[in-house]
Design a protein around this nucleic acid. Sequence first.
DNA 1: GTGGTGTGGTTTTACGTATAACCTCGGCCG
DNA 2: CGGCCGAGGTTATACGTAAAACCACACCAC
Lengths: 355, 355
Amino acid sequence: MTEREKAGGRWPTVRGAHATPARATSRDVARAAGVSQATVSLVMGDKWRGRVSEQRAEAVRAAARELGYRPNLAARDLRLGRTRTALLVVPALTNEFFARVYAGAARAAGEQGVGVLLYPSPEGVGPARDPFASARSAIDGVIASSMAVDALADLRAGGLPLVMLDSDPAGADASATVNPAIADGMRRIVGHLLDLGHRRFAHLAADVDSWTFRVRARALESALRDVPDAVLVRTEPAALNVDAGRAAAERVLTAPGPRPTALVCDDDMLAAGACKAARRSGLRVPADLSVTGFTDLSLATAVDPELTTVRLPAEAVGEAGMRALMAVLDGVPDGAGELPVEVVVRGSSGVAVTG
Amino acid sequence: MTEREKAGGRWPTVRGAHATPARATSRDVARAAGVSQATVSLVMGDKWRGRVSEQRAEAVRAAARELGYRPNLAARDLRLGRTRTALLVVPALTNEFFARVYAGAARAAGEQGVGVLLYPSPEGVGPARDPFASARSAIDGVIASSMAVDALADLRAGGLPLVMLDSDPAGADASATVNPAIADGMRRIVGHLLDLGHRRFAHLAADVDSWTFRVRARALESALRDVPDAVLVRTEPAALNVDAGRAAAERVLTAPGPRPTALVCDDDMLAAGACKAARRSGLRVPADLSVTGFTDLSLATAVDPELTTVRLPAEAVGEAGMRALMAVLDGVPDGAGELPVEVVVRGSSGVAVTG
DNA sequence: GTGGTGTGGTTTTACGTATAACCTCGGCCG
DNA sequence: CGGCCGAGGTTATACGTAAAACCACACCAC
C-alpha cells in the first residue's frame, strides 16, 4: 500500500487540516489510456513522433483531458535539474518603471513557459543580502538592474547566467546587457531645449549611484560643451521622489545669480517636484521656466502642465532582457543590446525668455 | 554508476550548452559529516530534538556550511506535495495600489518562506483564461482582488483556498476576505466636505464593475441622504486613468445648471484629471472647486494642489491577505477582516464658496 | 532473566517525471 | 532460414528530499 493510498487517495495535508484535491498523475492517465507511464510522458512531452502510434497518442491525450491532467512541475524540475525560472532583480516594483520592466519580462517569459521571480521584496528590503534565500527555488538565470547595486556581488557568486539592465556594456561582466539609449535621449532633449533658445541650464540629478545616471550627467555636459554661451548649474542630487525634487529645485531657483531657464531632471518624479517648486516661487512653467523629465511615467501626463520627457521603453527593456537571458541559456549569447528612446514634447517646455 | 556521475559530476545541461555549477545535495553533506542522509534531513529540517546528538548535529551543520548546501526545493516540494507558493491575482502591477499590495503580500510571505506568483501578467492580459497555465507550478492557495473579475470563475474551479481582497464579505464564497474600510472612508471624506460647507456634490465614478466601487457609491449616497439641502450629481463612469478623469470632469463642469462645488472621485487618478479639467475651465482648486481622491497614490502629492484623499493601506491589505491565506492553510480560517483607513486632508479641498 | 522504554541513529520508501535501456514482433535481405 | 532492422512500445532507474519503519543498545523494574 502506498503512502498515498493510505491517505485515502488524497494528498496528505501538509499545513494543518486543509484538504487539497487530488491531482491526476501521469500514471493515472496511463492507466486510463491503457498504456505505460512512459508513453504518457512521451506524448505529453511531444517527443512521440515515430515512437508511439497516432492512435495511442490520441488516446493518451483524451485521457489526459478527461482527468484534467497537469504535469507536476516539481517532479519535472527535479528530474530535469532545472527550474524554468528567472530571477528579476529590481529596486522596487512600486516604481512604475520597474513594474513595467517586470511586465515586459513576464510577457516574454510566459511565452516560453518560464516563470519570473522577483528580488528583493518590492520594498527594497530583501532578506538580508541573500538573493537565493529569497528565491523560492533554484534559478536558471538572473536579470538585474544596475540600480539594485547592493545585490550584485551576491549575484556573481551564484555563477549563474546574468543579464544586466541599464548597465555599462563594457564594464559589467555579464553574459549580456540591455540598455535604453540613455545618452541619445539626453542629447536629444537638450537639443530640443537649445532649439527653444535656452542657454542657462540646471541639472536636477538623482542621488542614485548607478551607471544610467552617470551617463545622463555626462551626456548633458557633452551636449552643452559644443554650445559657446551655454552654462550648466549642477544641483546636489535628490532622492527619487517628488518631494526631494521639489526641495532641490527650490534651492536652485532661490540661489543668487542668474536663474536657469531650463531645468533638466533625471526623472519625471523630480521634474514634477520641480514644477511644484517653480509655482511656489511664483514662476510659470513653461513661460518662465522649462522643465524636462525622464522615463515618461504615467505621472508625466498627470501633472499640469504635462511633462516634456524622454520616453524609456520599459516593457521592451524587460522583454529584451528576458530574451537575452534565454538566448544565453540556449548557448547563443548576443552581447549588448540598445533600445531606441523617444523625446516626447509636452507642455512643460517652451521658448526661453531671457530676462 | 549514476546518471550524474556519468555527466562528470555536473548537471546535464538542459537548455543548450550552458553549464550550471554542481550543487551539493543532502547526500554529499551526509558523506562529509559521516552520517546518513536521513540525519542530514532531520538536522536541516530542525526536527532533530531527541533524535540526533548535539555533536553530530553540529557536524552536519558545519558540513552543510562548508559545502554551501541548499536544499533542492523541487525535490522538497515533490516529496511534500505542496508548493509553498501563493498566487496573487491582481489586474495590473503598473497600478501603484496593486504594486503595494504585492509588496505587502511578498513581505508576509517571505517571512514564512512562501513564494508569491502573479497572475495575470501585469498587462492585464494573461494567457487566455487559465490561471494555472500561467502559474509556473502548482499553487497552494490564491489571493485575488475583486477587480480581477474575469479570472474568478477559473479560480473557484481550482478548488484551492481563496482569499478575496476588496470583496463583499457576505457574497464571496471565499475562505476569507480582507477589505479596507471603504465605506467608512467615503463617509468620512464626505463629512470633511460637509464641514467645509459643501452641499452640491458630484461623484466621479470609476467604470470598473467591482464591489469596492459599488460600496463607494452607496456610502456616498447614504452620507448625503441625511443632509437636507445636499444634492448629488452622478457622472458617467470613467476608466481608471488621468485622462478619462479629465474628460468626465469636463463634462460635469460644463453641464448646464448649478455647478457642483465638490467633486468626489473614486480614485486619485480621476481626481488628478479633474484638477486638470478645472484649471482648463478657468476654475481654481480649491477656491472655486474642491476635489477629493481615493487611495492616496504617490500621484496625490505629485500634483498641485496636492490631493485630499482617503488613504488605503495597500501594503497592509497584501500582508493581511497573505496571513489570512496561511491561516486557512493551517486550518484556522479567520473569516473577514477589515482594515482602517485614513482621511488625508491636503490642498485640493477647501471652504465652499456658494456663488 | 525478561520485557519495556528511551536514545540515537540507519535503511528504506515514496513523491511524479523523463529517458536510457530493453523487449517483441514483422518484414526483409543475403 | 538466420540475422538484422525499425517500429512501437514497456521496464527500470534516477533526480533529492522527508519521514515512516526499523534497529541496536543501554538502562531499569519486576
